[in-house]
Protein backbone atom coordinates (compact mmCIF):
# COMPACT_ATOMS: atom_id res chain seq x y z
CA UNK A 1 0.00 0.00 0.00
CA UNK A 2 3.03 2.24 0.38
CA UNK A 3 3.07 2.51 -3.38
CA UNK A 4 -0.28 4.29 -3.54
CA UNK A 5 0.24 6.41 -0.46
CA UNK A 6 3.52 7.59 -2.05
CA UNK A 7 1.65 8.68 -5.14
CA UNK A 8 -1.06 10.37 -3.08
CA UNK A 9 1.47 12.15 -0.89
CA UNK A 10 3.59 13.13 -3.88
CA UNK A 11 0.70 14.69 -5.76
CA UNK A 12 -0.28 16.51 -2.57
CA UNK A 13 3.14 18.14 -2.24
CA UNK A 14 3.10 19.13 -5.89
CA UNK A 15 -0.28 20.79 -5.50
CA UNK A 16 0.98 22.65 -2.43
CA UNK A 17 3.78 24.07 -4.53
CA UNK A 18 1.37 25.01 -7.29
CA UNK A 19 -0.77 26.82 -4.76
CA UNK A 20 2.17 29.03 -3.80
CA UNK A 21 2.95 30.06 -7.37
CA UNK A 22 -0.77 30.25 -8.19
CA UNK A 23 -1.27 32.74 -5.38
CA UNK A 24 1.43 34.95 -6.85
CA UNK A 25 -0.07 34.59 -10.32
CA UNK A 26 -3.43 35.83 -9.13
CA UNK A 27 -1.84 38.76 -7.30
CA UNK A 28 0.54 39.46 -10.16
CA UNK A 29 -0.65 43.01 -10.66
CA UNK A 30 0.19 44.35 -7.24
CA UNK A 31 3.01 41.99 -6.37
CA UNK A 32 5.44 42.91 -9.12
CA UNK A 33 8.79 43.95 -7.72
CA UNK A 34 10.24 45.04 -11.04
CA UNK A 35 11.64 48.54 -11.15
CA UNK A 36 11.11 49.92 -14.63
CA UNK A 37 14.42 51.63 -14.47
CA UNK A 38 14.90 54.14 -17.22
CA UNK A 39 11.23 55.14 -16.97
CA UNK A 40 11.32 55.84 -13.26
CA UNK A 41 14.42 58.02 -13.42
CA UNK A 42 12.52 61.07 -12.23
CA UNK A 43 11.13 59.42 -9.14
CA UNK A 44 14.06 57.15 -8.34
CA UNK A 45 15.59 58.36 -5.12
CA UNK A 46 18.79 56.86 -3.84
CA UNK A 47 19.49 56.66 -0.14
CA UNK A 48 21.32 59.65 1.23
CA UNK A 49 24.33 57.59 2.25
CA UNK A 50 24.59 55.85 -1.11
CA UNK A 51 28.14 55.94 -2.38
CA UNK A 52 28.03 56.92 -6.02
CA UNK A 53 31.06 59.05 -6.66
CA UNK A 54 33.18 61.48 -4.71
CA UNK A 55 32.38 65.13 -5.25
CA UNK A 56 33.62 68.37 -3.73
CA UNK A 57 30.81 70.77 -2.87
CA UNK A 58 31.37 74.41 -3.69
CA UNK A 59 29.41 77.28 -2.26
CA UNK A 60 28.04 80.28 -4.18
CA UNK A 61 31.37 82.13 -3.98
CA UNK A 62 33.06 79.23 -5.72
CA UNK A 63 34.78 78.26 -2.54
CA UNK A 64 35.40 74.78 -1.22
CA UNK A 65 36.84 73.63 2.05
CA UNK A 66 39.72 71.49 0.86
CA UNK A 67 42.96 72.54 2.44
CA UNK A 68 45.08 70.10 0.53
CA UNK A 69 46.04 68.09 3.58
CA UNK A 70 46.20 64.91 1.43
CA UNK A 71 44.61 62.71 4.08
CA UNK A 72 42.17 61.39 1.50
CA UNK A 73 45.02 60.62 -0.85
CA UNK A 74 46.71 58.63 1.90
CA UNK A 75 43.53 56.86 2.93
CA UNK A 76 42.67 55.71 -0.56
CA UNK A 77 43.61 52.08 -1.09
CA UNK A 78 43.67 52.28 -4.86
CA UNK A 79 45.44 55.55 -5.50
CA UNK A 80 42.39 57.00 -7.11
CA UNK A 81 42.88 60.42 -5.56
CA UNK A 82 45.75 62.64 -6.56
CA UNK A 83 46.21 66.14 -5.17
CA UNK A 84 48.39 68.68 -6.92
CA UNK A 85 49.16 71.46 -4.50
CA UNK A 86 51.47 74.33 -4.01
CA UNK A 87 52.34 76.80 -1.29
CA UNK A 88 50.94 80.18 -2.11
CA UNK A 89 51.35 83.41 -0.25
CA UNK A 90 48.26 84.43 1.59
CA UNK A 91 47.57 88.07 0.64
CA UNK A 92 46.16 88.92 4.07
CA UNK A 93 48.75 87.47 6.39
CA UNK A 94 51.61 87.31 3.98
CA UNK A 95 52.45 83.80 5.07
CA UNK A 96 52.95 80.86 2.79
CA UNK A 97 49.99 78.50 2.89
CA UNK A 98 49.26 75.14 1.33
CA UNK A 99 46.58 75.33 -1.36
CA UNK A 100 45.32 72.84 -3.88
CA UNK A 101 45.78 73.31 -7.53
CA UNK A 102 43.91 70.24 -8.67
CA UNK A 103 42.07 67.55 -6.73
CA UNK A 104 42.10 64.71 -9.23
CA UNK A 105 39.74 61.83 -8.72
CA UNK A 106 39.95 58.68 -10.84
CA UNK A 107 36.47 57.20 -10.71
CA UNK A 108 37.65 54.30 -12.81
CA UNK A 109 39.93 53.12 -10.05
CA UNK A 110 37.62 53.89 -7.14
CA UNK A 111 36.09 50.98 -5.23
CA UNK A 112 33.64 53.20 -3.34
CA UNK A 113 35.06 52.14 0.03
CA UNK A 114 34.39 55.51 1.63
CA UNK A 115 37.72 55.81 3.45
CA UNK A 116 38.59 59.18 1.86
CA UNK A 117 35.34 60.83 2.91
CA UNK A 118 35.78 59.32 6.35
CA UNK A 119 39.33 60.63 6.57
CA UNK A 120 38.63 64.17 5.44
CA UNK A 121 38.99 66.50 8.45
CA UNK A 122 37.19 69.47 6.89
CA UNK A 123 34.35 67.64 5.11
CA UNK A 124 35.56 68.98 1.81
CA UNK A 125 34.57 65.89 -0.14
CA UNK A 126 31.40 63.91 0.11
CA UNK A 127 29.49 61.21 -1.68
CA UNK A 128 27.15 62.04 -4.52
CA UNK A 129 24.18 59.76 -5.05
CA UNK A 130 24.36 59.51 -8.81
CA UNK A 131 24.86 55.97 -10.01
CA UNK A 132 24.84 56.31 -13.78
CA UNK A 133 28.58 56.49 -13.99
CA UNK A 134 29.24 54.80 -17.28
CA UNK A 135 30.96 56.81 -20.00
CA UNK A 136 32.11 56.08 -23.52
CA UNK A 137 35.67 57.20 -23.03
CA UNK A 138 37.76 56.14 -20.10
CA UNK A 139 39.44 59.54 -19.81
CA UNK A 140 36.11 61.00 -18.77
CA UNK A 141 36.38 58.96 -15.59
CA UNK A 142 39.23 61.11 -14.40
CA UNK A 143 37.67 64.12 -12.82
CA UNK A 144 39.04 67.30 -11.32
CA UNK A 145 36.90 67.91 -8.30
CA UNK A 146 37.71 71.54 -7.57
CA UNK A 147 36.16 73.94 -10.02
CA UNK A 148 38.38 76.26 -12.00
CA UNK A 149 39.22 79.43 -10.15
CA UNK A 150 37.91 78.12 -6.87
CA UNK A 151 39.68 78.71 -3.64
CA UNK A 152 39.53 77.46 -0.11
CA UNK A 153 36.89 78.96 2.12
CA UNK A 154 38.24 81.36 4.69
CA UNK A 155 38.54 79.91 8.14
CA UNK A 156 39.05 76.34 7.08
CA UNK A 157 42.35 75.41 8.60
CA UNK A 158 44.51 72.41 8.11
Amino acid sequence: MGYFSDIYHGIGTLLTGMRVTGKYFINARKGAITQQYPDNRDTLQMFERFRGEVVMPHDENNEHSCTGCQKCELACPNGSIEIIWDRVIDPETGKKKKAIDQHIYHLGMCTQCGLCVDACPSDAIKWAQNFENSVYDRTQLTRILNKPGSKVRAGVEE
Binding site: H9, G10, T13, L14, T16, G17, R19, V20, T21
Partner: peptide, 8 residues
Amino acid sequence: RLLTGNII
Protein backbone atom coordinates in the same frame (compact mmCIF):
# COMPACT_ATOMS: atom_id res chain seq x y z
CA ARG B 1 5.74 24.85 0.78
CA LEU B 2 7.26 25.65 -2.57
CA LEU B 3 10.47 23.66 -2.38
CA THR B 4 11.19 21.82 0.86
CA GLY B 5 8.10 19.68 0.82
CA ASN B 6 8.07 19.16 -2.91
CA ILE B 7 8.47 15.48 -3.74
CA ILE B 8 10.63 16.11 -6.79
